[in-house]
Amino acid sequence: MDLPQARAALQRARRVAVLTGAGVSAESGIPTFRDPQSGHWARFRPEDLASPGAYARDPGFVWEWYAGRYRDVLRAEPNRGHHLLAELERRKGADFFLATQNVDGLHARAGSGTRGGTLVELHGNLITGRDEKTGEVFPLPEPDALTLPPLSPNGHRLRPNVVWFGEYLPEAALWAAQRAFEEAEVALIVGTSGVVYPAAGLALDARRSGAVVIEVNPEETELTPLLSFSVRDVASRGLAALLE
Score class of each variant (00 low, 15 high):
residue 228 S to W: 13
residue 232 R to A: 07
residue 190 V to D: 11
residue 176 A to S: 04
residue 176 A to N: 01
residue 177 A to W: 01
residue 204 L to D: 09
residue 228 S to C: 08
residue 223 L to Y: 04
residue 198 P to I: 03
residue 194 G to I: 08
residue 214 I to L: 10
residue 210 G to R: 12
residue 211 A to D: 00
residue 195 V to R: 13
residue 184 A to P: 10
residue 222 E to M: 15
residue 195 V to C: 01
residue 194 G to P: 10
residue 177 A to C: 02
residue 212 V to C: 11
residue 205 D to G: 05
residue 199 A to R: 14
residue 187 A to R: 14
residue 220 E to R: 11
residue 212 V to W: 09
residue 175 W to P: 03
residue 228 S to H: 15
residue 197 Y to E: 13
residue 179 R to W: 09
residue 187 A to L: 01
residue 220 E to L: 05
residue 224 T to H: 13
residue 230 S to Q: 02
residue 196 V to P: 01
residue 181 F to D: 00
residue 174 L to Y: 03
residue 175 W to V: 05
residue 188 L to I: 12
residue 233 D to G: 08
residue 208 R to D: 13
residue 220 E to Y: 05
residue 188 L to N: 14
residue 187 A to S: 04
residue 203 A to C: 12
residue 216 V to K: 15
residue 217 N to M: 08
residue 221 T to I: 05
residue 176 A to E: 03
residue 208 R to M: 02
residue 214 I to D: 07
residue 193 S to L: 10
residue 190 V to M: 06
residue 192 T to Y: 12
residue 182 E to Y: 02
residue 173 A to Y: 03
residue 209 S to G: 06
residue 175 W to S: 15
residue 184 A to R: 07
residue 190 V to A: 05
residue 193 S to M: 03
residue 232 R to C: 05
residue 186 V to N: 01
residue 214 I to T: 06
residue 189 I to P: 07
residue 213 V to S: 03
residue 193 S to F: 11
residue 218 P to I: 15
residue 185 E to T: 01
residue 193 S to R: 11
residue 210 G to D: 15
residue 231 V to K: 01
residue 217 N to D: 12
residue 224 T to S: 13
residue 231 V to Q: 00
residue 198 P to T: 07
residue 181 F to V: 00
residue 230 S to W: 11
residue 233 D to S: 10
residue 207 R to F: 06
residue 210 G to F: 12
residue 195 V to A: 13
residue 209 S to C: 05
residue 198 P to L: 07
residue 219 E to F: 15
residue 230 S to K: 08
residue 230 S to F: 09
residue 191 G to T: 09
residue 174 L to P: 09
residue 202 L to M: 10
residue 213 V to T: 13
residue 180 A to I: 00
residue 213 V to E: 04
residue 183 E to N: 02
residue 173 A to C: 05
residue 218 P to A: 07
residue 174 L to D: 06
residue 181 F to H: 01
residue 196 V to W: 03
residue 212 V to Q: 04
residue 177 A to V: 00
residue 182 E to H: 12
residue 190 V to N: 06
residue 225 P to S: 01
residue 206 A to P: 14
residue 212 V to H: 09
residue 197 Y to P: 09
residue 191 G to H: 11
residue 174 L to C: 04
residue 201 G to M: 02
residue 186 V to L: 02
residue 186 V to D: 04
residue 179 R to S: 12
residue 200 A to P: 09
residue 216 V to S: 10
residue 224 T to C: 15
residue 211 A to W: 00
residue 178 Q to R: 08
residue 211 A to V: 00
residue 188 L to K: 14
residue 203 A to G: 08
residue 188 L to P: 04
residue 227 L to S: 03
residue 184 A to N: 12
residue 233 D to P: 02
residue 231 V to A: 02
residue 220 E to F: 13
residue 191 G to I: 06
residue 192 T to C: 05
residue 216 V to T: 11
residue 178 Q to L: 02
residue 214 I to S: 06
residue 189 I to E: 12
residue 222 E to G: 03
residue 211 A to C: 01
residue 189 I to G: 06
residue 186 V to C: 08
residue 225 P to C: 05
residue 175 W to E: 15
residue 193 S to Y: 07
residue 209 S to Q: 08
residue 179 R to I: 07
residue 208 R to Q: 11
residue 193 S to C: 09
residue 181 F to C: 00
residue 205 D to E: 14
residue 183 E to S: 00
